[in-house]
Design a protein around this nucleic acid. Sequence first.
DNA 1: CTGAAAGCGCTAACAT
DNA 2: ATGTTAGCGCTTTCAG
Lengths: 339, 339
Amino acid sequence: MDRKTATIQDVARVAGVSTATVSRTLSKPSVVAATTREAVLSAVAETGYRVNATASNLRRQRTGSIIVLLPNIANPFFSQILAGLASVLTPAQYGMLIADTQSGPDPDQLLGDYLTSGQADGLVLLDGSLSPEVLATPGRPPVVMACEWMGGDLPSVRVENGRGAATAVAHLARLGHRAIGHVTGPRGNVLTESRLDGFREGLASMGLPLRDDWVLEGDFSMDSGAAAARQWLALAERPTALFLASDEMAVGFMGAVQRAGVSVPGDLSVVGFDNIEIAQHLSPALTTIRQPRTLIGVRAAELLLDMIETGTRTGPSDLIEVEFIRRDSVGPPAALAAG
Amino acid sequence: MDRKTATIQDVARVAGVSTATVSRTLSKPSVVAATTREAVLSAVAETGYRVNATASNLRRQRTGSIIVLLPNIANPFFSQILAGLASVLTPAQYGMLIADTQSGPDPDQLLGDYLTSGQADGLVLLDGSLSPEVLATPGRPPVVMACEWMGGDLPSVRVENGRGAATAVAHLARLGHRAIGHVTGPRGNVLTESRLDGFREGLASMGLPLRDDWVLEGDFSMDSGAAAARQWLALAERPTALFLASDEMAVGFMGAVQRAGVSVPGDLSVVGFDNIEIAQHLSPALTTIRQPRTLIGVRAAELLLDMIETGTRTGPSDLIEVEFIRRDSVGPPAALAAG
DNA sequence: CTGAAAGCGCTAACAT
DNA sequence: ATGTTAGCGCTTTCAG
C-alpha cells in the first residue's frame, strides 16, 4: 500500500473537500451534510488515514495523557486500581502514563515536575505520602487522589478505612477475644493512621483496653508481617487475636507463625485488610476487609475526566464502602474454645 | 509567577537570541558558544521554561511514547516487568502507555490498531497469544517480545522455560520420586508448551514414565490451582510430587490440599515456577524456579530503544537464565521417608 | 557560531 | 454547510 501514512490533506484531496471538512467529519459528523460525510469517510477508508494525535493535541493545546503517580508499580494492589483507571481512560482517548515515585530520588520533586511540565492533562495520585504543598503550583492540571491523604480539599476517592478496622475488632471481640493486637502500616502514612484510629475506636466501643505493646509496626509488606510474627512470638503475654493493616502482612505473619508451630485460628485469630486474591487461597483462608480496587480506579478516572472537561480544580470526594469478609482464620480464643 | 507557561520565544527574547539557538542549547549544548549558552540557560531559569513535548514530537515526527501490550494489568507478574521497562524508558524520555488486551474484544485487532495508528515509537508485547500475522503491517514501528512467542524472527527477551521445568523434575527425581505430575498453563499458550516440553524432557532424562492422567490443565491462576487440587485428590493413584507451571497455581493448589488435610511435603512435594514474592512466605515455603522479571523488562526496553535509534526492525534475541530455588515444599516421597 | 524561515499535521475561528 | 486561513510550539535546514 502506501509507504507513508496519509495526512488529512490526502483525504481532503481524494474526497474533493477541504481539510476543515475532513476534520469536522471526524470530530463532529452531525454538522456536515450526509453526502459529503460519506465521501469523506470513503476517502478515509481508501487512504487508510488515521489522525495524527500529536498534531491534534498540539493544536488543541492538550496532551491526551493522564499521569498516574504510585509508590510501587510492582504492587498488585495498585495494578488493580490501574486496571480500573484504564477501563475509563482508554475509551475516552486518554493514554495512561505511569510513574513510580519509588524509583526516583525525591517523590515530591517528581510530582512538582509533572505538575509544571505540561506533559499531562491530569494526574491521579495513589501515593498518600506526597506533600500537599507541592499542589500549590499555579496553573496546574486537575488532580485526583485515589487514596487516603492529608491534603484537605483535593477531590478524592477513598474507602472507609476506619470503619473497616473497627468492624474487624468488633467481630473479634464478639467471638470472645479480650486481648486484641494490631500490626500497623508505616508510621506517617495516612492509611496507617486511619486504620489505627479505627482499631482504637473498635476497642473502645467494645470496652477493651488498648495495650501499646500489642501494637506492632509494619510497612504493609509480607516481610514486615513476618517480622511482626517474630515479635509476637517473643511476647511474654500474647494477644489471642490480631488485626493486620494489610493482607500482605497477614500472609507474611501467618506463614511465619505457622512455621513456628502456631495454629491459626486455634492459637491465634488473624484478620487482614484488602482482600487480595490470595486471601481465599491460604490455609486457613484469610478473614479480611474487602476494598473494591477496580471501582476505586473507575471512580477516580471519572472524577478526573469530569474536572478536565469542566475545567475545574475542585470536585466531590467519593467514599467507597468496605465489606467484612469472614473466612477461616478467626475463631473463638483458645481458653473459651477449651472451656 | 507567570500565568501561562513560557514558550521558546519567551526564552529567546529574554536571552536576546533566536529560538533556534535556544533549541540548540537545550538539545546539543556543545555547538553553542559558552557565553550564549549561559545566557540561554539563565533565561530558561528565569522564565521557568519547559519544552513542550507535543510540539517537539510533532516537529521531530515521533511520539515519545512506547506502548506495552499485556494480557492482564492486574497480574503482579507483569507489573514487575513493567517496573523494569519503566526504569529504562523513563530516563530515556519515553512515556509508557499500557494497554490491556483482556479489556477489549479482540486483542489482535488492538495490536493491529496500535501498529498503524502511529501513536507510538515502539511496542513491547507481553502477550504470547497475539497472532504473528498482524505484525506484517508495512511501515510499522519496532516491536519487541518480552515473553515466549510463536512468531519466529521478532527480537525478543525470553527465559529458559524448558530448562527450568526440566531442572524441577530432575530435582524431584533425585529425591526419590518416581511418580511426578504436572499442572500446565492454558493449552495453546507458548509458555505452557515450553514448560510442558521441559517437564517431558526432565522425565525422559531421568528415565521416568509420562502418565497422561498426571498432567492436569490449569490457566496459571490461583483458582485453577485449587481446581487442580480437587482433581489430584480425586485421583485413584496419585503422583507423590507435582510441578506446577506457575507459583500462583501452586499457591491455590497447596492451600486447597492443605485444607483437605494433606501435608506438604510429607504427603506430596510441590514445585512452582516464577518465584513470586509470596513463595517464601508460605507455609511450607515454596520451592520454585526464579525468573528475573525486572531484568526481562530492562532488557526488552534496551532492545527496543536500540531498534528505534538505529531504525532497524530486527534485533537479537535475549535468553535469560532461570534459577532453581529449593525451599521446604519438597522432600522425599512418603514411602521412602517411612522406609 | 547564530539567525531566518519553513513547516510537522491538525483544528477552530471567521468568512462565505 | 463548507472553505480559507492562521497558527499551536518546536526543530532544522540553509545562509551568513
